[in-house]
């Protein structure tokens, strides 16, 4: 039977941090190393370290991993090797969700061209956080808590199903925050194009089936809202 797994390519601090953070979602977390013999010996984490090389045909993955429901993280320290790995995985697995780490903008573009679904631009992200700390410390604090910490305030993706009583109503006519105690940040249409709630486009948007609402609120309020809309993605 094929496993649903998080495949992390590269054995380094980034890989270990990712592994720690994805275990709640993926039962199987595998770390793949280019220097497996050395890394297996020094591995003190609870994650299994496997070997791979860049010329791999990925037969092992094909046989044992449920590729469509798995996720791959490419975090090799050498940018060229990371790009090569991404392109190699994409060429073998069209449906694999690949997240890659880049150190600069140039590499980020190349990783995207190589087929990564999402690129984490490490330096830019760190710089963004620092500049936010300096310019908008409260925004940084609030969003950091909402996104990364297990506080009372949550963010959720809520999908509208066919039984929703607001279907057919104009978004601007409904005061979500008063009724449900939540703040709707954005609406994602069926075609996955997201629009912020304050955009003029959304003002005329009619609530329809399969709309996805990105909402912020307290856990109980979000649950109430989910009950009303019918389902949740989170």
């Amino acid at each position: 039977m094929k496993n649903r797994a998080a495949l992390i390519f590269g054995y380094n601090d980034y890989a270990l941090e990712i592994a720690k953070n994805v275990t709640y979602e993926y039962e199987n977390v595998y770390l793949y190393s280019l220097n497996s013999e050395q890394d297996i010996l020094r591995n003190r984490s609870c994650f299994e370290v496997k070997s791979f090389d860049l010329s791999d045909k990925w037969d092992d993955l094909n046989e044992n991993i449920d590729i469509e429901n798995s996720i791959a993280f490419c975090v090799l320290e050498d940018s060229a090797e990371n790009i090569f790995l991404t392109i190699s995985l994409r060429s073998s697995f069209v449906n694999l969700n690949i997240i890659a780490l880049s150190n600069n903008k140039q590499t980020a573009n190349k990783l995207q061209m190589a087929g990564a679904n999402k690129v984490i631009p490490l330096v830019q992200t760190t710089a963004e956080m620092i500049s936010e700390m300096l310019q908008k410390p409260i925004v940084k604090d609030v969003f950091h808590k909402i996104l990364f910490e297990s506080g009372a305030l949550k963010i959720a993706q809520v999908k509208v199903n066919e039984s929703n009583c607001y279907i057919g109503n104009s978004v601007s006519d409904i005061d979500w925050s008063k009724r449900y105690g939540i703040v709707v940040l954005a609406i994602v249409n069926e075609d996955m194009s997201s629009e912020f709630i304050y955009s003029s486009k959304v003002k005329h948007h009619i609530v329809s089936k399969d709309d996805m609402y990105i909402v912020v609120g307290y856990e109980t309020d979000i649950k109430e809202f989910e009950k009303m809309t019918g389902s949740t993605c989170d």
Partner: peptide, 23 residues
């Protein structure tokens, strides 16, 4: 930060993108 972003990207990818765009 990479670890935390990875967690969000697999859990609430759209919500993460929305917050990222906002910030």
């Amino acid at each position: 930060i990479v670890g935390m972003i990875s967690k969000e990207l697999i859990g609430r990818p759209v919500a993460f993108e929305v917050i990222h765009a906002l910030r």
